[in-house]
Simulated scan of single mutants.
Amino acid sequence: MGQRSTRSGTRRARTGVAAALATAALAAGALAACDSSSEPHGRRPPGASARPSPSPSPTPVWDRSPDSLAAVGDSITRGFDACMVLSDCPEVSWATGTDTVVNSLAMRLLGAPGVKERSWNLARSGADAADLPEQMARAAAHDPELVTVMIGANDACADTVSRMTPVGEFRASLEAAMARLRRDAPKAQVYVASVPDLKRLWSEGRGDALGSRIWELGICATMLGDAQDVSVRAQERRDTVQQRVVAYNDVLKDVCAKDDRCRYDGGAVFDYRFSGAQLSRWDWFHPSRDGQQRLAEIAHRNITAAQAP
């Protein structure tokens, strides 16, 4: 800054100028910092884009711990032939049973007192997809937090292949059932189990002399009739039934996927490699207590999982 002067006036003048310059510099820096930081007054330089504000975390639609449960479907959910011959045994139902060995889905989710107070088994032995809308209406009347669906085996297990439920009709029944539930209980969650692998059922039971004789009484004739016949024609018949079951499962998956509050099991029941221990000793078709327990395990795992299967 040149030579220093000894005169006090000059020092004061220079000190004043320096202070003024420092103040100006600080002010300019502060303005620049304001322009380049968070723009508290909402102003930004021309051409600059606004910073996106963080979006709130979405509330998950699926509740992994529902507090009430209604079950719809067919004889599997009624526990048919699991305790005694030709009889429903709802106490061992995979969905709503009270049997401690089976440890049903309702027992796992609600506890023993809750099963009696807040679960309802509305399935019916012999039911097929056409019965589902009416069952769903009855379920909705209880305003449950969760509805379980297991349907389709009877649609495939007809007297003849030509009498199996057409895929289009199966879809229409399922869509009507979901629409009825959404009208009367819009917030209810739905768990949809896949149709079991009927061809595996045939392959597991055909080697048992008693089981194959029981099948001749007319149990699931499309798949299990003439169990020892392995001719081309018989194999084609069984393949046709298997393809229909796969098509039903595709429908279950597709219809469920269109509803934010629905979970399909991802084919878990169809894929389960069950053995004779999981089949009723009276008909080698319906699940035994052991089989009901496995269905409960599959359902509970999928319903309480963080992500859908």
Rank of each mutant, 00 (worst) to 15 (best):
M1C: 08
M1Q: 10
M1I: 08
G2L: 13
Q3N: 09
T6N: 04
T10D: 13
A13K: 12
A20Q: 01
L21D: 05
A22F: 10
L26I: 14
A27F: 13
G29M: 09
G29W: 07
A33M: 05
C34Q: 10
S36K: 09
S37K: 07
P40A: 05
P40L: 08
P40S: 03
G42S: 05
A48P: 02
P52G: 02
P54K: 07
S55D: 10
P56Y: 05
R64V: 11
S65C: 01
P66E: 09
S68W: 04
A70Q: 04
A71W: 04
V72A: 08
D74K: 07
R78N: 11
F80W: 14
A82C: 09
A82T: 02
C83M: 03
S87H: 12
P90N: 04
S93C: 06
A95D: 07
G97D: 03
G97P: 02
G97Q: 00
T98L: 06
L110I: 12
R118I: 08
W120E: 04
W120Q: 03
A123G: 11
S125A: 15
D128R: 14
D128A: 14
D128I: 09
D128N: 15
A137D: 09
A140H: 04
H142L: 00
P144E: 02
P144Q: 04
T148I: 05
V149I: 15
M150P: 01
A153C: 03
A156Y: 04
R163A: 15
T165Y: 07
P166K: 06
E169T: 13
F170S: 06
R171P: 04
L174P: 08
E175K: 11
A177D: 04
R183A: 14
V190R: 01
Y191G: 07
S203L: 15
G205K: 01
R206G: 01
G207L: 08
L210A: 13
I214P: 01
W215L: 04
W215E: 07
C220G: 07
C220W: 03
D229Q: 08
D229F: 11
V230Q: 12
S231R: 06
V232G: 07
R233V: 10
R237N: 06
D239R: 09
V241P: 03
Q242W: 03
A247V: 03
Y248N: 05
K258E: 13
V269I: 15
S275D: 13
S275G: 15
Q278V: 08
D283E: 01
P287D: 03
G291D: 11
G291C: 12
Q292A: 12
Q292D: 10
Q292H: 12
Q293Y: 01
A296H: 02
A296V: 09
E297T: 11
E297G: 01
H300K: 02
R301E: 13
N302T: 11
I303P: 02
I303S: 06
T304Y: 07
A308L: 08
A308I: 08
P309K: 10
